[in-house]
Amino acid sequence: MMSRLTCLCLLLFFVTTVSAEIAGFPFESEAQEQRFRDLSSELRCLVCQNQSLADSNAGLAQDLRSELYEQVLTGNSSNQIISFMTERYGDFILYKPRFATKTLFLWLAPFLLFIVGVFFLIRFSKLRNQTQSIGATEEELQKIRELLQAEEKENQ
């Protein structure tokens, strides 16, 4: 019973925060509202740098949100809006870095490291398989098996 109540409280809490984000910005269509939501979470607040424009209450974030709102309403494309923002604030305003020469290493490093990792994994696992053979002849191996079996019997 108690847990249901907490669930309900949590649910209500999140419902209010989600609707507060859009509060004060009436949209003509669902698509516009969705685009506003998407863009405001893709763009970073420059004052509180670990928050998106949607999450931040900083004065600048509020101004940029209303700028975004106006541009969405006038029907500017998402690309137009993003270049408007980067022309003024630089790539820093984008949460997802662009794929450019400057960010090439950033984007490719995970794949590079993965390939290097796989290379060493294969190399060392091969090595381990080979060193596992202890260099005994078939006769010696037979003798070892017999000894092991004898010991097992003794233990039983």
């Binding site: 420059l46 004065g59 600048l60 003024r88 604030y89």
Partner: peptide, 11 residues
């Protein structure tokens, strides 16, 4: 603050 945005003001 509209012109501030044009100048990329953030702080």
């Amino acid at each position: 603050g509209k012109v501030g945005i044009e100048w990329g003001a953030y702080g």
